[in-house]
Each structure stands twice: as C-alpha cells, then as structure tokens.
C-alpha cells in the first residue's frame, strides 16, 4: 500500500479557468494567473476559506479590518456580483478588469455611476452626493463648513444635472465625465499591466502553455 499525494493544484471556491476569464476580460491568461496569486493572498488574510470577505478587503486597503468606509462598502458590493457577501475569484477578475488600462472607458463610466448611485435608484440623487462628500470629509483631515459643502454640491448639480430635474441620470453622468475625465482617473490601475511582474510565482502554478 502506498501513500500518494496529488500534485494537482487545489483551487479556491469560485475558481474559473484563466482561459475563460481572459476571453471575457481585458486580461491575458498570464495576467489572470498572476491575479490568482494575489487573490489567494487576499482571500486567506483573515478567514482562510479562499473567498474575499469585506473585512479582508478593508484590511488590504487600510491595514485595518474594522475601519468603516462608505466607499469600500460600495466597491465591495459591486465586486460581489452574486450578492452573497463574499467575492470569489471569477468576480474578482471580472471586476478588476474594469480597472485595467485597456478596459473601455464606457465600462469605467458605468461602474463609477453604480458606485455613486448609493441606493441603486438609477439616479445619483442630491442627498446621495452630499452623503458622499460628508463621508469623504470624515475619512480625511479636510474640514469644510456645512455651507461650503452645500455650495460644492449645488455647483456640481448646476454643472452635471443638465436636465435640471434635481438628479443625475446615466446620460448626464456620461456627458459630465467626458467633460471632466479626471473624475474616473481612479478607475484605472496602471499596476494591472505589470501584474505578472509583481507575482512571478504564477509561472510555477501555471497549467496553461505560454502560447495561449
């Protein structure tokens, strides 16, 4: 009787083939494999179950698992495509793909709209915008008077709400971003182009020939 140990890689729940993910996203197969190395690291940082929990996401961004942040909550909820409270590998790659330098600008604009449409009504309402400005002030050292916050929100609405109905719809948002492209600068992570250099160990675990 012998004792065998399988050398086949044990994948995390929600693992999807790199070739499939590469075909559906802006990533190459090698980049997807490198992202898997990052995903494994993040998904084992607090709860070792191969899935990214919100705490792990917060910890990766702030080095603090308990730091509440409205924007991290929104990003996590959008990454959690299946809405089951965790982010699996497929969701991680598909969501990060929007942040790839080669991803279509239209995808970045749409993602940012969903991010800021806090209550998912299909519009960015004035009270949502103000709530986000207040949240930003809480997390930063910036102190602005209530009047000043109102002024900034009013000015933004004057510029963005071209239909003048007191809310920003997707069409107005798109026009506004195209006039102010710096608004989606944070939707592009140049680092994603170098992901294979950051996680060279993907080569050791690769099961896909280079030619793919």
């Amino acid at each position: 009787m012998g004792c065998f140990s399988s050398k086949k890689t044990k994948y995390t729940p929600g693992y999807e083939e790199p070739t499939v993910l590469a075909s559906e996203t802006s990533f190459s197969v090698s980049e997807v494999e490198a992202l898997y190395e990052l995903f494994k690291k993040l998904s084992r940082s607090i709860i070792d179950d191969g899935l990214i929990h919100k705490e792990e996401f917060q910890f990766a961004l702030f080095r603090n698992r308990n730091k509440k942040n409205l924007f991290v909550d929104r990003i996590f909820d959008l990454f959690d495509i299946k809405r089951n409270g965790v982010v699996d590998f497929g969701e991680f790659v598909r969501s990060l793909s929007i942040f790839h330098p080669d991803a279509p600008v239209s995808e970045k604009i749409a993602f940012a709209f969903k991010l800021y449409d806090l209550r998912q009504t299909g519009f960015i309402e004035r009270d949502e915008l103000k709530e986000m400005v207040v949240a930003l002030l809480h997390e930063s050292d910036l102190i602005l008077s209530e009047d000043y916050v109102e002024t900034i929100v009013d000015k933004t609405y004057t510029d963005a709400d071209t239909k003048g109905d007191g809310r920003i719809d997707q069409e107005e948002w798109k026009e506004f971003v195209l006039k102010n492209p710096s608004l989606i600068k944070n939707m592009t992570l140049p680092y994603l182009k170098d992901i294979t250099l950051a996680f060279p160990s993907f080569v050791l675990n690769s099961e896909v020939p280079d030619s793919e």
Partner: peptide
C-alpha cells in the same frame, strides 16, 4: 494646502477607499 475642488465628484474620487492600488501593496 491644495485648493478644495468645487466639483463634489472630484473631491469624492480622492477617497482612500476608492484607491484600489493599495490592494497590490506587499
């Protein structure tokens, strides 16, 4: 100090919570 942007979305976009590059820090 840098001037405060009059565009609320520009201000919001500077949130650390929206800066995903931290995910890649070792």
């Amino acid at each position: 100090a840098a001037p405060v942007p009059m565009n609320a979305f520009e201000l919001i976009s500077k949130s650390q919570g929206l800066n995903l590059s931290s995910l890649f820090e070792k």
